[in-house]
Design a protein around this nucleic acid. Structure first.
Lengths: 241, 241
DNA sequence: TCAAGAAACAATGTATACATTTTTTGCTGC
DNA sequence: GCAGCAAAAAATGTATACATTGTTTCTTGA
């Protein structure tokens, strides 16, 4: 039984958000980490006992996670962990490519704030520094993952479109699709994609909306390609350099 | 007070779905129709009394609608009808253009079932017939709205990508963005867009993924253009014909 | 032995009471 | 009259009891 890993929710110390939100985060983490296996049924009473809360916040959390697409719901039959086919995970990257390319276009059309420019430039410099080395250790990978996240997230913000940000988040809340995995690919691929970041930023600065869109679309699509390659077990092709 | 229009929920006659779902549909309709004004606060007790149910299904419904993006939620402060700026409604069409163009590409790449081919061809023929007249009455507009919906919905189905369908639905669940409005534009615009449908279907049949994508993107974007024109009060330009 | 049905069980759906937080009200003092 | 604070009111958050639905198990009959 997989829900043994779920420790009780903290006592209601003030300043904490509602129990419903805490429980939601806890269960979401269990699903995304794979501790709760796909297809597993989520019993309200069992969860409430494990987490030390009543069924009310548990039900609220399950409903939230279902609307995020992480759980399946059937009336009178409860919730279960959604099964994601590989094709769905790959398709999620195609969708992200469309959404993020639109975000890049919006950012180019609508301009960056000073803070956003600073954040991106910082992310680019930090990335340059991390990738200067020949080999990447676990620590560097995590660090670059953060840098990568900041770059993309800042552009989503600069797009000034809440719905777009929400949808990108939906794409990312798919098991095995988290941004952590992105950096676990080939070193050369990561460098190439960091190069993409520089180009995308240039296009946005120049208000070249078309180029920003196309570059971002290709950028995200290349992650899909790397993913497919990794899933099929084939090594990444050596390009002439 | 606007929630007078909400009649009580039907008694629990069997065969009906859960009260939570009924309440969700009821409140969603009130929000989309504009009976509940943007920014209005939704009090759980008041709603439960008006609808003749307890707070439990009301809370469930409010949470659902918030995750659909129709309501705002703040912990300990409840739910209110989300205000949509005009820019957000327009942006929703840009997002739809990206998503539906991807759906058209997927449909072209993955092929149509016999039933889907039949459904689209039926929609195209019905549309031809409706638009053959010189003027469109209210009845014809509603009929064409249905035809238009079937065309797009069938392509979403043919894309074989649940996440894509879910996201398009999110785009459509924006006030003033319902497909009903699409047909209330200029007659020539509607004809032009029906022509688009024919071309898109051709491209999908020919497995021309690139063309299907581009045509669909322009198709949805043109709705945005019509919307912007309608919002700004300018008449649609007469093109030479 | 197996299919069909009924009863027991267990799960989810709903109502309601209580707890906590937010908002309002009204008082006090300047 | 108004700023600031305290108490009261009202709203949301949570727990729990009950209702309804779904599932399992056991019995019964062929």
């Amino acid at each position: 039984m997989a829900d043994i890993i779920l420790d009780p929710i903290e006592p209601p110390r003030s300043g904490t958000a509602t129990r419903s939100l805490s429980v939601t985060d806890r269960i979401r983490a269990s699903v995304l980490s794979g501790d709760l296996e796909p297809g597993a049924k989520l019993h309200e009473v069992r969860l409430s006992e494990t987490l030390g809360v009543s069924r009310t916040p548990v039900r609220s959390a399950l409903q939230s996670l279902a609307s995020e697409g992480l759980l399946e719901y059937a009336p009178n039959r409860g919730y279960s962990v959604r099964r994601f086919r590989t094709s769905e995970i790959v398709d999620a990257y195609e969708i992200r490519a469309m959404l993020e390319s639109l975000a890049a276009r919006f950012a180019a059309e609508r301009g960056l704030s000073d803070a956003e420019r600073a954040a991106i430039e910082r992310a680019l410099e930090d990335g340059d520094q991390i990738l200067a080395r020949d080999e990447l250790g676990e620590e560097e990978r995590i660090a670059y993952g953060t840098v990568n996240f900041i770059f993309h997230d800042t552009i989503h913000t600069a797009a000034r479109c809440r719905m777009l940000g929400d949808m990108v988040r939906l794409c990312q809340s798919v098991p095995q699709s988290s941004h952590r995995n992105v950096v676990s690919f080939d070193h050369l691929d990561v460098r190439r994609r960091h190069d993409d970041h520089h180009r995308i930023y240039d296009a946005i600065l120049l208000c070249d909306a078309y180029r920003a869109e196309m570059l971002m679309r290709e950028h995200v699509a290349s992650v899909k390609t790397s993913l497919v390659r990794a899933l099929s077990g084939r090594p990444s092709p050596r390009r002439g350099r």
